[in-house]
């Protein structure tokens, strides 16, 4: 616990230093700066999770969902344009809330890259999938999951936002010869890819979201898992305090 608090303070300091360094030293390394900022923001989420009290079973379930999100592409080897990982992450966010959504999204990126290869894109991917999962959790919180139309448009929009976030790493690593044409060029060239992502999100949400939410909810109820305390107290069969 104390360790987590130290890291919390440390990452805030690093964050401030980064900004100061940028402002004072006129140090134009945008890629590094952006990575630093992303790292700090994610660190805050991670540290919050470290400080929470959580059941062993919940850790196992989250690790399992991360692994499933990371391998979800395996059956689609013959269909390169389909991106099933996002659907898994959105569903986790919808059922288990914003924090779990963020964790599963961000860590699924690390884990899948462990097998596919890390790169400068890893932090961006973590951030993009993390916020995707988080926003799904917020969506449930404020609007609810009943309406398939809302869910579908949510998935569709995220297909693009994800692509746009991922484009940023290319932009930031080439800041020194930045032109608006270059920016537009990158965003135009990724359009079809993003569209495919958006469409596969819509297909998966319309075909599977109801089933998946039911499967996960059945499991959550059965074991009183990862309830958002703001919505209702967890139904725990577990004896309090183990």
């Amino acid at each position: 616990m104390a360790r987590a608090r130290v890291s919390l303070i440390a990452s805030i300091i690093v964050f401030i230093l980064l900004i100061v360094m940028y402002a004072v030293f006129n140090y134009h390394n945008y890629l590094l700066l952006s990575l630093g900022i992303i790292g700090c923001v994610m660190m805050l989420f991670f540290i919050r999770f470290e400080m929470k009290s959580i059941k062993t079973r919940e850790i196992v379930i989250l690790a399992l969902l991360i692994a499933i999100a990371a391998v979800a592409r395996v059956p689609f080897a013959g269909l390169p344009s389909v991106q099933p990982t996002s659907f898994v992450i959105i569903t986790v966010g919808l059922v288990f809330g914003a924090e779990s959504g963020f964790l599963v999204g961000a860590l699924a990126a690390i884990v899948s890259n462990m097998f596919l290869g890390q790169g400068p894109w890893t932090p961006w991917q973590m951030f993009a999938w993390g916020t995707m999962g988080m926003s799904a959790g917020l969506l449930r919180h404020f609007i609810g999951v009943g309406n398939l139309w809302i869910l579908n448009s949510f998935g569709f929009v995220w297909g693009f936002i994800f692509g746009w976030m991922m484009n940023l790493w290319i932009v930031f690593s080439n800041m020194h010869n930045f032109t608006w044409e270059f920016l537009v060029g990158i965003y135009v060239s990724s359009f079809y890819h993003d569209l495919a992502h958006a469409i596969s999100n819509v297909i998966f949400i319309s075909l599977f979201s109801v089933r998946w939410i039911r499967i996960l909810n059945r499991f959550k109820k059965k074991h009183g898992l990862l309830e958002d305390p703001t919505i209702k107290p967890s139904i725990a069969y577990e004896k309090a305090g183990k």
Partner: peptide
């Protein structure tokens, strides 16, 4: 981050199984 690290390690172990 002991908990996050454990989750990542477990997920890495689960991937081949999955």
């Amino acid at each position: 981050l002991p908990r996050i690290a454990l989750m990542i390690m477990m997920a890495i172990r689960f991937v081949p199984l999955m």
